[in-house]
Write a protein that binds this DNA or RNA. Structure first.
Length: 204
DNA sequence: ATTTGGATCGGT
DNA sequence: CCGATCCAAATT
């Protein structure tokens, strides 16, 4: 039976942790300027504002955080550290400002693409703030279920990265990743060598 | 109007 | 650890 490769809107209405976990193994696709970028999501982080002090939405509804207060399944793209964009999937019903940060992809359309970090993946996939608020089931940017033949990822969880300012919320294990992927942003050195030289596959 | 610091990254 | 690089948001 052919099911649509795009997850239904209800996918984004599961609990935000379930979405963060469920996104591991799914594909992100961006069609732009004659290029089709496709990658397999291998690392995510859940942000559950406004209570979660690590979330941008914990500081209230502002022009920047506006889309997180909107309906689920849309893109929240923000600019950070003077040079990077980061892409989030908005989750939960409108008025509930949750989101899932996409932290790393395994590049599928271009093996040379550097996609092992939230800033790098946006750079490689040409994702900028013009996509802030875009529907993630749209014609240019979308999410897809993994093909049926894909293996089920072994998912690990850990504390989120770069949120030391958030007190106890920094300790929540709301980061999810494919435990077997060398494309996870904090992969150890041995695995990093493998992703830079994919033709020299380690035996494993 | 000015200041502050950030959901990053690569190199040292 | 450090620097690159700039914007959002809070503060004055």
């Amino acid at each position: 039976m052919s099911r649509s490769p795009k997850p239904p809107r209800s996918f984004f209405l599961q609990g935000t942790l379930a979405v963060a976990r469920g996104l591991i193994g799914m594909h992100l696709v961006h069609r732009t300027g004659g290029a089709l970028h496709r990658g397999r999501i291998v690392e995510t982080e859940a942000y559950q504002g406004p209570r979660d002090l690590a979330a941008h939405s914990s500081r209230g509804r502002t022009p920047r955080t506006e889309v997180m207060f909107g309906p689920p399944g849309h893109a929240y793209v923000y600019f950070i550290y003077g040079m990077w964009n980061c892409l989030n999937v908005v989750t939960a019903r409108a008025g509930r400002p949750h989101a899932v940060l996409l932290r790393a992809l395994e590049p599928l359309s271009d093996p040379a693409a550097r996609t092992w970090g939230p800033g790098l993946l946006c750079q490689a996939f040409r994702i900028g703030r013009e996509l802030n608020g875009a529907d993630l089931r749209g014609p240019r940017l979308w999410l897809e279920r993994a093909p049926g033949r894909a293996r089920t990822p072994r998912i690990a969880r850990a504390m989120r990265i770069g949120v030391d300012y958030a007190g106890d919320w920094a300790l929540k294990p709301w980061r999810f990743y494919d435990a077997d992927s060398p494309y996870v942003s904090t992969a150890p050195a041995a695995a990093r060598a493998a992703r830079r030289a994919p033709q020299a596959r380690p035996v494993e």
